[in-house]
Design a protein around this nucleic acid. Structure first.
Lengths: 374, 374
DNA sequence: TATTCTCGATGAATCGATTCATACACTTCG
DNA sequence: CGAAGTGTATGAATCGATTCATCGAGAATA
């Protein structure tokens, strides 16, 4: 056990008095090796604490057993779950993940793809940054022979394998729920219109209104950018409007936080003063108040199935020329923030406690329902 | 621009009519190259969309420009921040991160360290799993010449570079605050006693009691394991006890969530029925209720400085034989959950809106204070 | 003019694995 | 007995970069 550097296959061979080829055969198990020799080799490996050099191996076999994962921000709990899913699948198949946070900036994405190409990752899982039509950096990766699977968001210009969530169904389900609770004046805070995700969520909102024959009011559609500040700003606009909506559908988690900020500042109560529902479940939503009704996305599954798809491509278990698209169904988590307003209430939970807004939560949680799209 | 595989340096050399050495020189900029040749080489590189093979490079120079990051769970917002810090520092220095989630299991840690050795990462950032005294796998990595920097938690047996948070000061600060609010019967829910982090937080608690000359009651010290379930279970025990404490200090975020669950189930109010403070800030703590007073850790900085320390070791900017230990100071975020109880200020729970616990928040938030250790 | 220097460019050796054509030692069979 | 067949073991060539000794041409110097 030499100190200060890793042992090489040659050292193992010498110590075991065999050729390097034999050591390699023992390691790979591909070719048959006599019992005596195998034992000597294994002993030498243990003695030297030998760990085969994956770098040298990669150079020779032209496979690195590593995948790139470019996502927008791991700090977002949604992507943390995606990463776990992707990692679990990757490790189970002997791959390792190189993760990079693009912060949704195209320049960073471009740079990272170049880095991953240099590192010769076998494939790339990509949460595309909202781009302005220029996808040459993505096309170049493909031309180099490295497959890409998109997660969460599909690309606009290039057809690619993609695992995403059914945004239309999710938001339709959610807005439909608001309508069932008796709401007619339902506002939406959308994301940036350049993102497909955002467009689809708006689409689901419109579909739900249409099916209930509620007329769309343009004043109730506020265009945000998926960031907290815009949820706050547009929330204020909605809350201070002449005729305030009775419910708001916020199309992602961060903007929902901004919206709640606005509510707090104006000392308004949810759901008493206004109902709130969100796309993207927030962490700890079960525990803290207001408990927000939300469309919960199968984030772990997005990561896992994305990685599986990519690995299947690498191992040519899929050969379809046309891109594979997997669309997962979200779940609607119904919670306190959209419960029927007390003044309309038909006295559910009328046990003294029930008039206390904050108190209502715990009891409700037990009966929280989950509705799945399709 | 050939399709299906990456160009090699040899192809670039041929196209530019120069030797491979010259191409290498242009790329590295180490040796001077004539202007005409340089131009031809650069043109060829662009034409072929050439991306140097980092694998081949790594084999030759025996440096991979990659770092391993083994942490317990990226889903924990604390570690997501740590990752961002580490990644930012790594990228700024031309390194890439291979991230692995150990879920605090030693077997996984052992396996991952072996994987990282095979991948020949230049160094490893490690959040050690609580181990039962056997650190041979860690020692072996060091013997192989790969430096390790511990994040968040120090190792028990092996002296290692480490970047962590001042747990003692943090929890002392927090418990001191509870005492200042008038509490004398203050309980603590600790983590597993095998973790140094956990021990230190208990230590800070004890120090704060001692300095206020409050006698320690063993019944108020509950031993948990840093998981949500234990916070819930021990919370129930405390809340249902004959003489309930007036305040609880929970020594990490997950257990705090469990504790709040218990509170909810028993329909108890915070801070009216009991004050709560937590080590580890929870995400969205500013926005949702109850707003928990918490010790906020500089997570991003832990990651960044850890990576910086590791890279300095790699570049021999630090040569100190003895391990370097960096201890960062946490901040106390004072929020609603420890505000002075209402029965001491104005009549609560009588009628109408003003008695509603959830209502009190917004006004209070404005006066939230931040206290920094030392 | 002859000699030395400098600057650019070259290409062979190298890193540590895999792979495969080859060889060797034994069986087995005609 | 010799030929063919079988099962192991070997080691040279290879992957794509870096590195450095070497070399040639032209400039500077004696």
């Amino acid at each position: 056990m030499k100190k200060g550097s890793e042992a090489t296959i040659k050292e193992v061979a010498q110590r075991a008095n065999v050729s390097v080829g034999t050591v390699s055969n023992v390691l790979s198990g591909s070719s048959s090796v006599g019992a005596a020799m195998r034992a000597r080799v294994l002993a030498a490996i243990a003695d030297l604490d030998y760990h085969p050099d994956q770098v040298a191996r990669s150079l020779k076999v032209k496979k690195t057993r590593s995948l790139g994962l470019v996502l927008s921000d791991i700090t977002n709990p949604f992507f943390a779950q995606v990463l776990r899913g992707a990692e679990d699948c990757a490790l189970a198949n002997g791959y390792v993940l190189i993760t990079l946070n693009s912060d949704d900036k195209v320049e960073r994405e471009r740079e990272f793809l170049a880095v991953l190409r240099s590192f010769r990752v076998d494939g790339i899982l990509l949460v595309v940054a909202p781009n302005s039509g220029d996808s040459t950096h993505i096309a170049n990766v493909l031309r180099s022979g490295t497959p890409i699977v998109c997660l969460d968001r599909a690309t606009e210009n290039i057809p690619l394998d993609c695992v995403s969530v059914n945004n239309i169904d999710g938001s339709q389900l959610c807005v439909r729920h608001l309508i069932q609770q008796g709401h007619r004046r339902i506002a939406i805070i959308t994301g940036s219109p350049t993102l497909q995700t955002s467009k689809e969520r708006l689409q689901g909102y419109l579909a739900a209104l249409k099916e209930a024959q509620i007329e769309v009011e343009s004043g109730l559609i506020k265009e945000g950018d998926f960031r907290e500040a815009s949820g706050y700003r547009l929330g204020k606009e909605l809350l201070l409007a002449h005729r305030r909506p009775t419910a708001v559908f916020v199309s992602n988690g961060l903007m929902t936080i901004g919206f709640i900020h606005a509510l707090n500042e104006l000392s308004l109560q949810c759901p008493d003063d206004i109902a709130v529902a969100s796309f993207d479940d927030l962490p700890l939503s079960e525990v803290f108040r207001p408990q927000i009704t939300a469309v919960n996305q199968p984030a772990y599954q997005v990561g896992f199935e994305g990685a599986q798809l990519l690995i299947n491509r690498l191992q040519r278990k899929i050969s379809s020329r046309t891109p594979v698209t997997i669309c997962l169904n979200p779940e609607l988590k119904i919670r306190e923030s959209t419960s029927i307003r007390l003044d309309l209430d038909y006295g559910h939970k009328s046990t003294g406690r029930s008039t206390d807004g904050a108190r209502r939560g715990p009891g409700r949680r037990a009966v929280a329902r989950t509705i799945s799209a399709i």
